[in-house]
């Protein structure tokens, strides 16, 4: 096998790449560019882009968890590639992934709250807007969700005291993020 070490400037330093600071606290806030990959990527001009998660699932914004689950299962019966008509598998697969995304967001109370908040602020978070999931956010989310109950109560207390300390001007989402960061620090 050929060695490609020469082609790289600044070359090979094993261990060099280990981040020295916790990535959670050194986030450059540069927005990343979307590229559209061939095939299953959505067309930006399609009607689908206009649909909110609620519209995708065909339920009102006040819909209960039960309604969300039922709508999801019904739509899955329609769009899942196992049951879709042979000629439309690819198209339906795209739709299934969208429905899945809507379901995952709306069936999780905290993610639904964030989504509702963004919608209320008039940001048009249609499908794909949150699709670029952030790995670290996800890890933090998983950690925070599965803390034992006393820990989450504890952090709730901490969050409140933090707010008193001057977090009062922060947006709801910023407070949520802070709360999650705190949780991850405790772990």
């Amino acid at each position: 096998m050929r060695c490609h070490g020469l082609t790289v400037h600044g070359t090979n330093h094993r261990g060099f790449c280990v981040p020295t600071v916790s990535p959670l606290f050194s986030r450059p806030t540069r927005p990343v560019t979307r590229i559209s990959f061939p095939k299953a990527t959505l067309k930006n001009d399609g009607l689908v882009m206009e649909l909110s998660f609620y519209e995708l699932l065909g339920i009102p914004e006040s819909g209960s968890l039960m309604e969300i689950k039922n709508a999801y299962k019904q739509l899955a019966r329609k769009y899942h590639p196992d049951v879709s008509p042979p000629g439309r598998v690819e198209e339906y697969t795209k739709r299934f992934i969208q429905v899945q995304e809507a379901y995952e967001t709306l069936s999780d109370p905290s993610r639904r709250a964030m989504y509702d908040h963004d919608m209320a602020k008039g940001i048009n978070f249609a499908f794909n807007a949150r699709r670029r999931h952030n790995y670290h956010d996800q890890v933090v989310e998983q950690k925070s969700e599965w803390k034992s109950r006393w820990q989450s109560q504890l952090s709730e207390l901490k969050r409140r005291s933090n707010n008193k300390d001057g977090g009062g001007n922060m947006s709801w989402a910023a407070r949520m993020r802070q709360q999650r960061d705190e949780l991850s620090n405790e772990s």
Binding site: H4, S26, T29
Partner: peptide
């Protein structure tokens, strides 16, 4: 063999961006 030949020379890191 991959690890031995390339080490960290062609590595990547996750790009952190605001969610």
């Amino acid at each position: 063999a991959l690890n031995r030949s390339y080490g960290a020379s062609l590595d990547l890191v996750t790009l952190q961006n605001k969610a």
